[in-house]
Design a protein around this nucleic acid. Sequence first.
DNA 1: GTGTGCCCGAAGAACTTCCA
DNA 2: TGGAAGTTCTTCGGGCACAC
Length: 251
Amino acid sequence: MKRISIKDIATKAGVVPSTVSFVLNGKAKEMRISDAMAEKIVAVAKAEGYAPNHIAVSLRTGRSRILGLIVEDISNPFFAALAKNIEEKANELGYRIVYCSTKNDSQKGNDLITLLSQSQVDGFIITPLPGMEQQVAWLQRQEIPVTFMDRYLPGLDVSSVLLDNENGVRLGMQHLLSKGYKRIGFVTVELQQVQMVERQKAYEQILQERGVAEDNHFILRLPFNYQHDFAVDQIRRFILDQQLDAILFST
DNA sequence: GTGTGCCCGAAGAACTTCCA
DNA sequence: TGGAAGTTCTTCGGGCACAC
């Protein structure tokens, strides 16, 4: 079935394509097109079920009104919730979102940046991984807008929306310490990502400030792609082996 | 293998036509 | 004559056909 184009609408309405374009883009008044003609064009477009060809629009305007959202794992509830909010806000502003997951693989992240930039996305929101620096720098050289989310890459001047990792851990630890807990465990994942490093650093710093000996710093590092049952078993052993009375989860 | 020209759909500047 | 209405032409990036 042939797709209805602006040209088809023009033929049926008895005008040229640009007149249709002006009307359908709300510029009829500006271009001094009569109300009667504008109404006729709108009616034909509606009757024919016309929908703009986004590829053609981006070809002409150089903008796709699509943003690439690259996160660690879109099935993760944390990123799914963030994605939902980002999508709602983007829709309000007339943008659509394409979601991708790196699965914590920087090569995959780099490939996704290449793929999406070739697809003419207007900008990127990325939870970056070490190893993606060059690709992000390339985006900056191409003047393609990039924003980091949840974490950042030291050495790159990119706008970032971040959690206050240190203060978050500090508040959590203060709460547990104020309740009288002394043997507080810290559960994290084996990642050298900046946010994980900052959270662990904050945990150790707070214990140090309280004069807790290093022997009583209890840290469990789970592998990134852990299975649920495995993690539960590891945490159970961690609690028993270290005789913990509280745990702070960093993720 | 390389160069050239055309095509696709839509936007918009510049232009022409019409009419009071 | 001048404003309103509508038209023409160029442009964009990439794929493709064709000539050399």
